[in-house]
Design a protein around this nucleic acid. Structure first.
Lengths: 310, 310
DNA sequence: GGGTGGCGATACTTCTCAGGTATGGAAGGC
DNA sequence: GCCTTCCATACCTGAGAAGTATCGCCACCC
């Protein structure tokens, strides 16, 4: 059975007349008679009653027609859905990101993207940079925001562009002696209990800290560890110690805390957006478009990478 | 787009390989390539990624395939449903009947039919004989049980077979003077307030009553009128008078009432099953089968009418 | 009651297009 | 660098979808 048979049966039911149905279908009457006869033979049941008053579906015909209508609707929807998916209007985007990205680029980008592509399902996974890279390579993520460019096995298969610079700042409770200072020095930090992200999650941050504090790694070893920047801020606000984190913490101000620059200024690895070149999808392209329009320098970097052709 | 394209796309997605999918479909590889290419052109989107590792659906392809699967399921279900409808396994049966038929033939017939054809929706409409006949002719009923054979305009288009004989009996309260009598005479009836079905609903019953009571139509004019046999029995039980109705009232015994034969015995019109010859349907045939197996004489009458060929 | 017109089925021809064979071309693998 | 694998392209063949002509049937109508 072919879709043609369904279309013909529906036309015949609609017009109740072989000749007029054939005309509406753009064919002659004999072929329609034959196709309907073939269909009835295949269905094993008479689908239409030919009476002097017109052609009417039998009970079997009614049952057949209702299924036929749905089948043709599904077929029509198939191309429509395929087109929408191809244009990135539907689908899903699995995004891995480090928590601090929630402070700066993500609210803007996600808000914009969700508005532009309301039918795309966003799957957001906060995870450490290393895990993001592995998930990208395994095809478990479509795009990731990491701290620093991906390294290690398979990283050459990823396309990466920086989406923001960053440096280390400190956060303390308003009651802390350092509160009110514009900046704190490495020396001042060495004398305080510290609150930092775990070294295994963000090795690049740990490396930056070690550089800042010099040989005095002991201050780091005894530091309180918190995975989430909000936790770092919260612990600092409670007076646990001096929180150290990316400058994008400034995007989460709240009463009772104080931010200080750290001197010497210690650059942190760039926030980097990465995706697997071989797993491009229309939704991913749409997301990159949004990112592009959000930060022109990213757009320039992507264009350089792809020569403007997507 | 034809169903063929859907089948091919699904096979390709399943096997992930043009050659093997074509083999599974029983065709060569080049036609499959061409059909997929045609499909992608018609859908306006690439549906499959051809990689060295295999052929995989794109996002658009996934969207397309899920619709395609449902479309093919509907098509398969179309023939199955048509077959079931043609065999009378599904569908509906609209049955008109006089209330007293609920006492005798219907419980048995409907119980059997509902068991044999669980997927047929029964639409039961209690109505007077005249209305049943009109509804049959208008195509609003499939079959009817009436008192007496249909008469009047259009009745020749109906096929009718008797499904039960009947005669008049009386019902009184256990406290009534007649209670305990095996029978009551016409003379005894003339002296009592009567409870009868309305003459316009069942003219045949009214005619039988008039014959029984002779010239004394006054007893009938003053009678209490109740459409439902159960109501007649209920009113008699309350001592309102002597209820008169079909002998199938015996099928509804209850405490506090007494049934008497009426002398002279007054035959009532037969209970007749009718249907419109031109509106035969598989479900109707199945119903007639059930009736046939339930009462052999009906089967014989139907066979006489149709020569055993249905 | 024979003529007539409308309608679906049948007979037969035509031509489109699905499918077959042969081959090309690109990408890995050894 | 050659060979293999795999999909695409080119071209041919044949099934069958569609077209034309006609038949058979039934209602309707002078």
């Amino acid at each position: 059975m072919e879709a043609r048979h369904l279309r013909y049966a529906l036309a015949l039911a609609e017009h109740g007349h072989f000749g007029r149905a054939a005309h509406a279908l753009g064919i002659a009457q004999p072929p329609l008679s034959k196709q309907i006869a073939d269909l009835e033979r295949e269905a094993g049941a008479r689908l239409f009653d030919r009476t002097r008053q017109g052609v009417f579906p039998t009970a079997a015909g009614e049952a057949f027609l209702s299924r036929a209508r749905r089948a043709l609707e599904e077929m029509a929807a198939a191309t429509v859905d395929a087109g929408r998916a191809a244009r990135g209007e539907t689908g899903r985007l699995r995004l891995g990101f480090i928590a601090s990205a929630l402070l700066d680029p993500l609210p803007d980008v996600l808000g914009r993207f969700g508005h532009e592509r309301p039918d795309v399902r966003l799957e957001l996974h906060e995870m450490a940079s290393g895990r993001s890279v592995a998930a990208l390579l395994a095809g478990e993520l479509d795009v990731a925001i990491t701290l620093g460019s991906p390294r290690g096995a398979g990283a050459e298969h990823l396309v990466s562009v920086p989406v923001g610079h960053d440096h280390l700042i400190a956060v303390v409770s308003s009651a802390h002696p350092y509160a009110g200072q514009a900046s704190v020095s490495a020396n001042q930090l060495r004398r305080q209990p510290l609150i930092v992200a775990p070294g295994e999650d963000e090795p690049a941050v740990a490396a930056g800290l070690r550089t800042l504090l010099g040989e005095d790694a002991a201050a780091l070893d005894g530091a309180t560890v918190a995975r989430d920047v909000h936790t770092i801020i919260g612990l600092a606000a409670c007076g646990v110690g001096v929180g150290l984190g990316p400058s994008r913490m400034l995007a989460a101000p709240r009463p009772g805390i104080w931010f200080c620059e750290v001197t010497p200024r210690t650059a942190l690895p760039d926030l980097v957006l990465s995706f697997a070149d071989r797993h491009r999808s229309p939704v991913l392209d749409a997301f990159l478009d949004t990112v592009r329009s959000n930060c022109p320098d990213v757009g320039a970097a992507l264009d350089r990478r792809f020569g403007g052709v997507r």
